[in-house]
Design a protein around this nucleic acid. Sequence first.
DNA 1: GCAATTAATGTTATCGATAACTTTAATCTA
DNA 2: TAGATTAAAGTTATCGATAACATTAATTGC
Lengths: 337, 337
Amino acid sequence: MVTIYDIAAKANVSAMTVSRVINNTGKISEKTRTKVKRVMEEMNYVPNQTARNLVLQQTKLLFLLITDITNPFYTTVARGAEDAAKKNGYRLLFGNSDENLEKEADYITTILTTRADGVLLAPTGDPSLPNIDTLRKHAVPFVLLDREVPGVECDIVLGDSKDGARQLTEHLIANGHTRIAMVNGSSSISSARLRLQGCMEAIKLNDIELAPNYIFETSFGAQHDLSQLADWLKQLNPMPTAIVAGNNILAVEILRLLRQESITVPEQISVVCFDDLGPYSEAEPFLTVAMQQAYQFGYMGIQMLVDRIAEDGKNLPWRKIVLPAELQIRKSVRQLS
Amino acid sequence: MVTIYDIAAKANVSAMTVSRVINNTGKISEKTRTKVKRVMEEMNYVPNQTARNLVLQQTKLLFLLITDITNPFYTTVARGAEDAAKKNGYRLLFGNSDENLEKEADYITTILTTRADGVLLAPTGDPSLPNIDTLRKHAVPFVLLDREVPGVECDIVLGDSKDGARQLTEHLIANGHTRIAMVNGSSSISSARLRLQGCMEAIKLNDIELAPNYIFETSFGAQHDLSQLADWLKQLNPMPTAIVAGNNILAVEILRLLRQESITVPEQISVVCFDDLGPYSEAEPFLTVAMQQAYQFGYMGIQMLVDRIAEDGKNLPWRKIVLPAELQIRKSVRQLS
DNA sequence: GCAATTAATGTTATCGATAACTTTAATCTA
DNA sequence: TAGATTAAAGTTATCGATAACATTAATTGC
């Protein structure tokens, strides 16, 4: 590989002069500048970022750790993050924790080792606290994504989970539904808790009664096995007329189960959920959802992270951005009577 | 940040001894090993990968450059790639060229600068040749993904595009279709060419005639604007009874257009395509597709790349893997009399 | 019991860049 | 025109690790 010294030798200048030309710093005569540039061209010189990182003590690398790479919500987040990173002169590394605390811990180690300049992190849930503490201990700037963690004061981008869930539920109620069930992610995840709260509030405000077993708690990730969900559904008596899914992935699983059981949507049961289903939903607009501004999650998250890195964490107060969710009415809710 | 020297000082040994403990090399007495390890624990030591990269002349970083991050095919590829990278002790950096040659060139520069050890590359098409030449010039090991580029001898993972397209078309013909149109990606992309060929072969073998204007060429990416596609469709006379889409994204766009025009699928027109639509297709199995082994694309691609890096490009012959596509019959094809 | 091994550790140079300081030559000022 | 200033370079040290070689102490063999 061609180094700065090879260029220096061929151009008959010192390495420092070459460095100055590359970085446009210091005073360089036009003559040597063009000469050095020509030699760099000739020799196909590419700066060694590794060496630069070492001396500059920064990598210009940010890390985005998401919990489910197959979820279009996170794919879109990634896009926004990528664009914002690029705009700010950073590159972006991705990781996927699969809603798994150990994988998350692994990635945190990777992040420390990689010496990324900062992390945009969707924690797996409240138990992520030790992992986040590791970041803090090593003074790695980070911004949380989508989920709050009790005990962690930091910059964060959230969706308005409570309000979104309330909207979904109100919509069901407005369509005459009163037997509303909910399939939700783990209660150790702040957004899952808020979605449940939003749902319950709407129900209470409308003087509806809800049996406790109408709420099923599982993981936000794809289910390997639908049998538990199936058992839960079968045991409900009377059957709910509508199900609120805590996110898009759970909605897909519910749809899959209902197909399997030959229960039609929305004729026999209505289904709504949080988060959209990606490009496919445009072609076959079916599910009624509370749509989140996924791209903005990523974009603003990275923006806050970059600001935090620039401020060196000194005087900038913690910032919290809450992005509203918007009800997108489609065809998965039946109008009752 | 704690360095190897801080550990050395506190443990009363040399930096080299610490390095040996970290890397489990050389001979170290059990006593000093445990002492050093304890000090590392105490001081929260994390090795500086940047420094290591510099001296070892490798980054243990691989780069995956895909052409569309919103396409579930590539998301799944990414998963396979991530798993394979991890298994081989590498980390993976992603990039998204958006089917755009300039963005691709940008990423190639990033890759050179990052000093990634290798690249798994889905080229935007035949015009990617100069970008690939840049990689070659700098001796960066790479493996191509999904698309061949004339003039480039290298390791490559492909899908059997021709056969897949043939299967799709034969399926349409078997269902009584004879007026078959195709919406395809750019003919500067090898897989698009092969898919067209496969389609044509099936048509010819069955003595069907096909007007040239039944073939519409566009980009494999999402269309900003459906009007061109709409114009093309309207001008067809007679209307086709079936459309073969060159990939999943195009199929979604076609479905979107047909909805907009109130043309029902499959009643008025049948639609099939290459590549599956991700998890949703399980919940709402609708489109008949030629399913590709996306995960394997990524997994085997990285595996080949790692082998190539290990062999230092010397004696290993170029390898070409062709993964079959499998017809997945669902509900978007109408049986004609 | 003493040279020859071997085990355990230390020293120095290096990777490729940049920061901080130094040197040389050219230009300016009174 | 001498001394001060500035422009345009060059030198040396450094970032944090590891490779290669050097050193010391302990153990072995005959």
